[in-house]
């Protein structure tokens, strides 16, 4: 029975490989664009907050609050703002992608030991040089960690995008749910789970490879 189900699923996948592939590509696009947008906003904002710490608490709280709004509600708002299709989905996903990166950028930079900053300043680095040569390299591992969390989140949130016609693996899942077709559901769910795990692993490897030898084994 179980074997049979697997067989049917595999057969289904082979039949629909073109659809599945297209959905997968779209899913990658959704994740890629929204995480990129998230980075573009969160990293500079995190750096800014680390310079002006009195804004930090308020901004991080606000970002945390936004994060607690259920995805469906956010999609609803986005739908009202942008109508149906890709734009509202990218908007919502980008917003969700911001928080982990923002938080990790901010803590990564503020947790750089004060003695390094003191030494850097004392030997004549400008603020920009301290940021580029000391703070960002030392916070990099933490920032990449934030990106990884963001990617994993976004891969799963992106399945919701199918609801508002933005495509992606969610499309298959929603089709399956509305037609009681398990194969459609699995064809969306299994690849998205694999993608999440694979990307998380890949980013972990990148994270390790960009950490200089001097920092390995040292918690940052």
């Amino acid at each position: 029975m179980g074997g049979n189900a697997v067989m049917t699923f595999v057969a289904f996948c082979i039949d629909h490989q073109k659809d599945i592939f297209n959905c997968l590509v779209r899913h990658f696009q959704l994740v890629g664009i929204s995480v990129a947008a998230g980075m573009l906003i969160a990293i500079p904002l995190g750096i800014f907050l680390s310079r002006f710490k009195h804004f930090a608490l308020a901004v991080l709280r606000l970002a945390g609050m936004v994060q607690t709004i259920p995805g469906l509600v956010m999609l609803g708002f986005a739908l009202l703002l942008f109508g149906i299709g890709l734009p509202p989905a990218l908007f919502v996903l980008s917003i969700y992608a911001i928080l982990p990166i923002l938080q990790n950028t901010y803590t990564g930079i503020t947790e750089v030991e004060k003695s390094y900053i003191e030494a850097a300043k004392g030997i004549g680095m400008t603020n920009g040089q301290i940021l580029r040569k000391i703070e960002i390299p030392l916070a990099l591992s933490s920032i990449v960690g934030g990106i990884r969390t963001s990617v994993v989140f976004t891969v799963s949130w992106a399945t919701l995008a199918g609801l508002i016609g933005a495509g992606g693996l969610g499309d298959l899942i929603w089709t399956g749910l509305s037609t009681y077709n398990t194969n459609y559901i699995l064809a969306g769910a299994v690849p998205s789970a694999i993608v999440a795990i694979a990307l998380s692993g890949l980013i972990s490897i990148i994270q390790k490879s960009i950490t200089p030898r001097g920092l390995k084994g040292v918690s940052v």
């Binding site: 030494a119 004392g122 030997i123 004549g124 680095m125 000391i134 200089p212 001097g214 920092l215 040292v218």
Partner: peptide
């Protein structure tokens, strides 16, 4: 900044940059 580059500075916490 120019001034500090012409004056050596050593601190107790050493402050060697761990990424270098």
């Amino acid at each position: 900044v120019q001034l500090r580059r012409t004056i050596g500075y050593v601190i107790q916490q050493i402050g060697l940059f761990p990424n270098m």
